[in-house]
Design a protein around this nucleic acid. Structure first.
Lengths: 334, 334
DNA sequence: AGTATTAATGTAAGCGCTTTCATTTATAGC
DNA sequence: GCTATAAATGAAAGCGCTTACATTAATACT
């Protein structure tokens, strides 16, 4: 593979001149430029981005650390981010942290060691303190779906509490009073905040969450189907279930069907996230819209503005969820 | 950030000795090693993988080019690959080609320029010739879900024709004779092969595909719902629909429901891929299992064997699909 | 034509590491 | 203690590019 040395020899110019043509950032006489470009073409020369990165301490790439690579939520997040950067001529380097402390830290180190110009971090296990210290280091990063007040300027997040509130408020407005809840893992900030919103909505109707109608799930379909089975096993009556995400809601729908119960005839169901398949469940799922693709784009724009000085970009950092009413909720007939 | 120069000064040894400790591949006296490790710890030294890559012409990373970042198919593929490499201490660099010729070529160039030790390519737009020429170059790569005879040793693929055959054979065995077909984009090799299998199964029953009961979809839900609407609009009777993938099957299920038709009561439906949500559709989808996660792992193992000399690894290159019978097919009552 | 100023280009030294070959140190045998 | 051999370590030259500063060439003005 030809190097800049061979191009400079063939074109009859210096290394610096070839580099100026590659980067097109300082003046080069047009006739000289043509000579250099012809030499590159003839030699099939491609700049070595590893050497460029070492020499310039830049890499024109952004590292993205997500919890998982599968599932509609992450797919939409990554698609939103990658589309924004592709339009800006940047590449992304994606790695997964699997909600595990050591793996998340290794992922961050890997991306730093690749000399990424910036990181987009969707991390759950590393501590706030770790991220505050990382913010004091050189590589800029933006946090997706997590809010840390000490570094608020680097956070793109959703008001999860409001989302939990809207889900339950919708059911209360439909007359429901006995509402079950299938939560995400409660060590997760977003799972906790959604439940807090649920409790706030109940409090407005002088109601309290019944701990016997609460199941701590895992944000997966199996968490939803296990959760519904557990709730039914209590024999306690309920007319609605709030699930802390759509995947568990989907699992709950399947479990209900398997036990011969019709949604929303027997009870209503609300999810959270509005991921793509929510439209295709049967019945179509009422849910809380989580604009993750838009948030992903916004994280990308934050990087373009802060790191690449694209100064005419506006960045929204706090997102508000809103209710999507489909077919899985009906008025309570009690 | 400390460099190898500062470590060598603090430890009182040469650069080469520090490098030997970093790589742990040539002898270093134990007392020397301890001195160097202590210096690294004190300085918070982290090797710069950009410089390592330039100096050694290796990167300990594998580039993966997939068509999309969203959707269950790609999520499972990426998860399978990444899990295998994470177990081997390697990192992956993921980029998307979006089934577009220029974007796929840019993606390959990007991954090559990152000095990836190998590439895993799920590409659809670049030509066989392009890939044959790439095979003659330095960077090793393995193709996922594509078979090119000239470079067969680098291909991990599924027998798509057999999959199409099994889907239709199942319906024929259930007594169906009027079978509609919603295809993928027919320029795609896998879409074409699946339809060829469909035709082969029909031929065994002295039947021919009815061009009026054929719709060319796009492998997306909308292709399935549009396809079903188009098929119903023909007013021609059919008792079953084969969809060339599960996402279109899901769209077909939804479109049927929207037109007040019950699956499988009104007609049966078979999909292809067996992606995760096929289990959660209503009714549960009969489909053709496409072991994409296993194939992803196999591609990773190919790289570990061919590039990293992990010689006790067996690699299966041709995968056979098989039928998954769930609830969306019943016997034809004609 | 000469001089001053500006534009274009060249020189050379890294960037942070690896690795080959040379040198030094340690060890074994007599 | 001396010599031969082996082990450990050091010196130095890149890997492919960028870029600061110096030099050369071009241009404008008198």
């Amino acid at each position: 593979m030809a190097t800049i040395y061979e191009v400079s020899e063939l074109a009859g110019v210096s290394l610096a001149t070839v580099s100026r043509v590659i980067n097109n950032n300082t003046p080069v006489r047009e006739s000289t430029r043509k000579k250099v470009l012809a030499a590159m073409e003839q030699l099939g020369y491609r700049p070595n981005s590893i050497a460029q990165s070492l020499a310039s301490n830049r890499s024109n790439s952004i590292g993205i650390l997500v919890s998982e690579l599968h599932g509609p939520f992450y797919g939409e997040m990554l698609t939103g981010i990658e589309a924004e950067f592709r339009a800006a001529g940047k590449h992304v380097i994606i790695t997964a942290g699997h909600s595990d402390l050591a793996t998340e830290q290794e992922g961050i180190e890997f991306l730093k060691s690749r000399n990424c110009d910036a990181l987009i971090l969707h991390v759950e296990a590393v501590s706030d303190q770790y991220l505050i210290e990382l913010a004091a280091a050189e590589t800029p990063f933006v946090l997706l779906n997590r809010h840390i007040p000490a570094i608020a300027e680097r956070c793109i997040s959703l008001n999860n509490e409001l989302g939990g509130y809207l889900a339950t408020q919708h059911l209360l407005q439909q007359g429901h009073r006995q509402i079950a809840y299938i939560a995400g893992p409660m060590w997760k900030t977003d799972a906790k905040a959604r439940y807090q919103g649920h409790q706030r909505a109940l409090a407005e109707y002088q109601l309290q969450a019944n701990p016997k109608l609460f199941f701590e799930g895992d944000f997966r379909e199996t968490g939803g189907s296990d959760g519904l089975s557990a709730l039914l096993a209590t024999k306690l009556p309920f007319t609605a279930v709030v699930c802390a995400n759509d995947e568990m809601a989907s699992g709950a729908l399947t479990a209900a069907r398997e036990q011969g119960l019709a949604v929303p005839d027997h009870f209503s169901v609300v999810g959270f996230d509005n991921v793509n398949f929510a439209y295709y469940t049967y019945p179509k799922l009422s849910t809380i819209d989580y604009p993750i693709s838009a948030m992903g784009k916004m994280a990308a724009r934050w990087v373009l503005r802060e790191v690449y000085q694209c100064n005419n970009i506006k960045v929204q950092q706090l997102f508000e969820p809103h209710l999507i009413v489909r077919d899985s909720v009906v008025a309570s007939n009690l």
